[in-house]
Simulated scan of single mutants.
Amino acid sequence: MLTHEQREAFDEQGLLRLDGAVPRADAERMAERVREFLTSEEAIRHNSEHEYLAEHPGGYQPLKRAGVFDAVLDSAVPVALDELFGPDGWKRPRHWGNPAVTYRVSDAPWALPTDGWHVDRAPDEQGRSRSVTVFVVLAELRPCGGGTLILTGSHQLVRRYGQHDVKNRAQRKLLGARHPWLAELWSRQPDPGIERRSRYLEEGPVVDGVPLRVVEITGQAGDAFLMRGDTFHAVAPNALDRPRMMLIKGAPVSA
């Protein structure tokens, strides 16, 4: 059962952390299957075709079709979604999850990205979320290890000042006009005098009554995170020697 504090956090921050939502043994088993697949001839052939796949390999359809990740469907994740949206308020997938693996490809120190900030789906005309995104950690994920960055509270501003039918660039422009902290977050020419890590991950302003802060997903195998689909987030670089290994799945919601 979710507590009142958990429900309140999900409503206000757009993000809910569920420690150990998926049994650790199941998560580790999924991670091992992903590792095995990435060393197969099929995966090597697929990922060698494009240079960018060296950092974010893909081609996991055979694993998904085989139901390798379907243990999530029998975990605490759908139970929490039922509580938040109602049993009929979100669409259950046939198979669960898209593996998200990020390798270290540079010796550069970890840096908060300026580009790639987006929402998965803008709210409807009444300002209600139309989707939820689920992240499941498959292997220990440490700070600076490629965990997705989430701008908590941003869904509230998107609903107030964004538009349900515009692209992410326009949404960023609309929100950036509300406060320089937001404009600087995704500026293509960030101020070199600003220490971005402390400014965004350790601090944050209150914009029109909404506390904002960037949260980096970290955790142990089996930890899960539920994010409202109208919350800004971004892919992060991996500055560690171990790959980031997660499952990501979006689902439509009706509340």
Rank of each mutant, 00 (worst) to 15 (best):
D165M: 07
R142L: 08
E12Q: 15
G146F: 12
M245W: 01
P123M: 13
V253N: 03
K167I: 14
R188F: 14
T39F: 15
R160G: 10
M30G: 03
R121N: 06
H50T: 07
L18G: 09
Q163V: 03
T231K: 01
S154E: 15
F85N: 07
L174E: 07
G153Y: 13
L157W: 10
L175W: 09
L112S: 07
I194H: 01
L18W: 12
T3S: 09
Q61R: 02
L157Y: 11
W186S: 08
Y200C: 13
L2H: 04
G193M: 01
H179Q: 09
R104D: 03
V134Y: 04
D223S: 09
V136N: 08
E83T: 10
Q126R: 14
G89Q: 05
G229L: 04
I150E: 10
Q189K: 13
A66R: 06
D19A: 09
D124F: 07
E216G: 08
R142Q: 11
L141H: 05
Q13M: 14
F37C: 01
Q189E: 13
L174M: 09
F232L: 09
K173F: 13
E49C: 10
L81Y: 12
D88L: 02
R160S: 15
E83I: 08
G97Y: 02
Q126L: 15
K249E: 04
R142E: 09
H4I: 13
S131R: 03
A239Q: 02
L149R: 05
G59E: 01
M1I: 00
V119E: 15
L174K: 11
T39Y: 15
G153T: 12
E216T: 02
L157A: 10
R178M: 12
A108S: 08
R65W: 02
A71F: 10
G145D: 01
V34R: 12
P87V: 00
A54Q: 14
W110C: 11
R104W: 00
H56A: 06
G229K: 01
S187Q: 06
T114R: 14
K249P: 00
A31H: 01
V119S: 14
G116S: 04
N98S: 04
R33C: 00
D191G: 03
D230S: 06
S106G: 01
L112K: 03
W90F: 07
A21S: 05
E32S: 06
V77D: 15
W186A: 06
A31Y: 03
R17Y: 14
E12T: 13
N168T: 09
L175A: 06
T39S: 14
Y200P: 07
S40F: 05
V105W: 04
S129L: 08
P252S: 02
E51Q: 15
G222N: 03
D124V: 01
A177T: 00
A255Q: 07
V136F: 01
G116L: 07
D230P: 12
R128S: 13
R7D: 05
T102Y: 09
V119I: 11
K173N: 08
V158K: 10
A236V: 08
V101L: 08
P192H: 05
A122S: 03
V105C: 04
V158C: 13
V137A: 07
V105G: 07
V158I: 13
E203N: 15
S106T: 00
Y161L: 11
L174C: 05
